[in-house]
Design a protein around this nucleic acid. Structure first.
Lengths: 151, 151
DNA sequence: GTAATTGCAAATACTTTGCCACGTA
DNA sequence: TACGTGGCAAAGTATTTGCAATTAC
C-alpha cells in the first residue's frame, strides 16, 4: 500500500497541490480506511486527529474532489461522504438503514451498459453513476421487534 | 390525476395520518411536481407557500417517508430531496452536475437482478436501491470553456 | 374531549469562509 | 520571496425540536 500512497501524492502534486503534512495524512487515511467516510470521521481518524483542523481536511477533500482523486457521495446521512477514486476501480454500496453500516459491493456493476446508452441518447458528457442499495442488515433485523417488519 | 391524489390521501389516512389542509397540500404538490424536490422547494411551491410552515412540511415529509409513501434521496446537494413513492414505479435519475437539472431515466433499470443476488448473498432485507447518473448536460457543455473539458 | 397537528422560534448539525500566520517551492 | 496552505473562529445553510395554540376525529 506504500506504493499506492506514493502514487496518490504524485497525482496530487501533478494536479498542483503542495506536498504538506496534511495532504499526506489525509491520503494515508483515505488509503487505509478505504470506505466512504464523513468529514467528521476523517478528522477523528488517527492520521488526522489533533494534527489537522477540520477546515483543513474539508478544503483538502474539496481540492482532491476537484482534481478527480476523491468522490463525494450522498448516502442519505446528513453529512456528505468522501471516498478515494482510483482509475479503473468502481464501487457500489450496500447500506444498512438502521445501523448505517456501509459495505462495498463486489459483484460486477450492471449499469455500465445503461450508462453508455444514456450517454448516446441524452448527450450528457463526463458521465458517472452512483448506485446504492439500502436495506436492513441481518444483525439489525434480529434485534428488531418482530412486529416492526415493513413493506 | 385527481384520482391519484385521492388514493394518496386514503393511503395516508390508513397509515394513521389525519386529513389536514397541510397533508392535502403537500400531496397535491408531490403529485403535480412529480420530481425530487428539496424541503425548500416544497415550501415555495404554490400549494404550500404561505400556507404551511417549513417545520410542518418537514414533519409531514418525515411521516410520509416513514409510511413508505415518500422516498428521501441524497442527490449530492446539501439539501435532501423527497419524491413520491408509488408502488410498482421506480425511477433512476440523470443529474447535471453544473446546472443541477434532474431528469428521470425512462430506460428499464438494470439493477433488479443484482438486487436479488445481494438479498440472497448478504441476508439484507427490505432492500431497495438508488441509482443516479451524474454528468454535464449538453446545454452546460456548450456554454463551457473548451479548455475546461476534464476526464 | 382527546390526541395529533401546526406555527413560531430556538437549537442543532454540518458546511463553508475570512483572515492572518506559516511552510513549500 | 511569493504564493499556496493551515489553524482558528465566525458565518452560513439545512435540519430538527420544544411548546403552546389549534384542529381533526
Amino acid at each position: 500500500m506504500k506504493l499506492l500512497l506514493d502514487q496518490l501524492i504524485d497525482r496530487a502534486r501533478v494536479a498542483g497541490l503542495r506536498k504538506t503534512k496534511a495532504l499526506e495524512a489525509i491520503l494515508t487515511c483515505l488509503v487505509e480506511c478505504d470506505r466512504p467516510m464523513t468529514l467528521n470521521e476523517f478528522t477523528q481518524c488517527g492520521h488526522l486527529s489533533q494534527k489537522c483542523d477540520k477546515a483543513t481536511v474539508f478544503r483538502l477533500l474539496q481540492k482532491l474532489t476537484d482534481k478527480g482523486m476523491v468522490r463525494r457521495l450522498g448516502l442519505h446521512e446528513r453529512a456528505a461522504y468522501f471516498t478515494l477514486l482510483i482509475p479503473g476501480t468502481h464501487h457500489d454500496y450496500l447500506i444498512c438503514r438502521d445501523c448505517g453500516n456501509i459495505e462495498p459491493i463486489t459483484s460486477p456493476c450492471p449499469v455500465h451498459q445503461l450508462e453508455q446508452k444514456i450517454r448516446e441518447e441524452t448527450g450528457y458528457t463526463n458521465l458517472y453513476h452512483e448506485l446504492e442499495f439500502f436495506g436492513q442488515c441481518p444483525s439489525c433485523a434480529s434485534t428488531d421487534q418482530p412486529s416492526k417488519a415493513r413493506d
